[in-house]
Design a protein around this nucleic acid. Structure first.
Length: 428
RNA sequence: GGUAGGUUAUCCAAGUGGCUAAAGGGUGCAGACUGUAAAUCUGUCGGCUUACGCCUUCAAUGGUUCGAAUCCAUUACCUACCA
């Protein structure tokens, strides 16, 4: 199966240039690239789609290049943004690039002999170029009339509130320059990216044609949207990051488990790699999901596959066990062994044993300490509303104090707010 | 530069001297139902406080008043029309 068929089946092709010609080209291995701007020191689940697309190409024998946007990231891409962005300092950029590189390395294969992935920083080829040279060599090929017509720029020009700075306006030139350089130096013939990158990609295609006389291609991936209209990858608490320090593995797993029924099959196609879940399996999961949605087999498989991919098999197993214990219905008679499985998996907080002696610590304070309630007032409301459980027993007494007699196995307290928010408090 | 209008809590938005921590809606949080769903219904939704209550908030600063989100002045930003 060609990579294009594969992507189409997964619903991952939003648009592409010269489809017929590209199909022909892609019959043999080609080199392609996708850029990632280091706007934070971790990638998040939203970045996975283009990144995994690179991986998909690689699995079918193509040569992927991941471009860390040291140069472009210092400018800020106006595409899809409604407001001018704050420029990042050089130190932050350096830090972000270093962190993101580590994550990229985990998702692409840099070791394979046949078609190893490459990672480059576009700062490496923009550094030595003077502003004047850039204007003469590159700027000359761009028509402002065309640039202004591009969606990303026009949207900002029409919005009188925000406008667009000259800096962000120029972003397109840098990205186009990247494509041209990669084509020239690495024979890169295809750029992929999110559908908001269309304008930048086509700019690169034109520049490459004008400068090198080469016909290169672009392919965009769809913007992932939740059926309920909310933004994919964002929860009330913020984005879901790949870095376990920002989003714990357990939360990451839970994020996928909580996928809306209507989205789950689509997301299996978008996010899983054939090496983890085969096409047949996705199709059979789709059937199961329709026949028997309450089993949530598709959700479980999606969460397992994603956790395995990003955090590895040990972390995945721990999450599965912890989730099984907490949501399996047998928490009341939990054994010490089982409990030790969820400690550290579920958010865990420590408390000094001394505080639990005698009168103990007020429950409201413990809720705040555990991070389950933002303030004591809110904690009180949570208790009154019937949303707080100590060791899975509902507690509605606001004045309740937690003492050492509440400890399970002499050291843990299992706090829960609402249905899904667990925190283990460990005395020490 | 001129004229007119605007800036309210997490978001949208009402409020034009005391009854206003401030209507309504969204989002969020929690409860019931359920499948760790969806839909629906209920409660809650500035901070502190067991509570009476106290404190901070209606762009910023200063003023009028017993009392201001509401009136006045200045400043900043935004919008529309004109130049």
């Amino acid at each position: 199966m060609s990579i294009i068929d594969e992507l189409k089946w997964r619903g991952l092709v939003a648009d592409c240039t010269d489809a017929a010609e590209l199909e022909k080209k892609i019959a043999a291995p080609i080199t392609l690239y996708c850029g990632f701007d280091p706007t934070a020191d971790s990638l998040h689940v939203g970045n996975l789609v283009p990144l995994l697309a690179l991986r998909r190409f690689q699995l079918l024998g193509h040569f992927p290049i991941a471009v860390a946007g040291g140069a472009t990231g210092s400018i800020g891409d106006p595409s899809g943004k409604t407001a001018e962005r704050q420029l990042l300092t050089q130190e932050i950029l350096d830090h972000n690039i270093a962190s993101v590189k580590v994550q990229l390395a985990k998702l692409l294969d840099f070791e394979t002999k046949q078609n190893p992935a490459r990672l480059v920083d576009n700062a490496s080829w923009t550094k030595g170029i003077s502003f004047l040279d850039f204007l003469r060599d590159i700027g000359k090929h761009f028509s402002v009339n065309q640039m202004v017509a591009k969606e990303s720029v026009r949207a900002r020009m029409e919005d009188r509130d925000v406008g667009i700075s000259y800096t962000e306006f120029s972003y397109m030139l840098l990205q186009a320059f990247d494509f041209m350089v990669l084509c020239r130096d690495a024979n890169c013939e295809l750029q992929i990216g999110g559908s908001d990158q269309w304008g930048n990609i086509t700019a690169g295609i034109e520049l490459t044609r004008k400068k090198l006389g080469k016909h290169v291609f672009g392919l965009t991936l769809p913007l992932i949207t939740n059926t309920d209209g909310s933004k994919f990858g964002k929860t009330a608490a913020g984005a879901i990051w790949l870095d376990p320090k920002r989003t714990s593995v357990y939360k990451f797993y839970q994020f996928w488990i909580n996928t809306d029924d209507r989205d789950v099959i689509r997301y299996l196609k978008y996010f899983t790699l054939p090496e983890i879940i085969s096409r047949e399996e996705i199709e059979s999961l789709g059937k199961k999901h329709i026949e028997n949605p309450e089993a949530r087999s598709a959700h479980k498989k999606l969460a397992a596959a994603m956790t395995l991919l990003i955090h590895g098999s040990n972390a995945m197993l721990s999450c599965q066990i912890a989730s099984e214990i907490l949501f399996g219905g047998s928490v009341e008679k939990i054994s010490e062994e089982d409990f030790s499985e969820i400690v550290g998996e579920v958010p865990t907080k420590e408390i000094e044993k001394l505080k639990l002696d005698g009168a103990g610590i007020p429950l409201v304070e413990l809720l705040v300490h555990a991070g389950l309630s933002p303030s004591k007032g809110q904690a009180r409301k949570d208790i009154e509303g019937g949303g707080v459980n100590i060791n899975n027993v509902r507690e509605v007494n606001v004045a309740r104090a937690v003492t050492s007699s509440d400890l399970l196995f002499g050291k843990h307290i299992l706090l829960r707010k609402g249905k899904k928010n667990y925190v283990v408090v460990t005395a020490k």
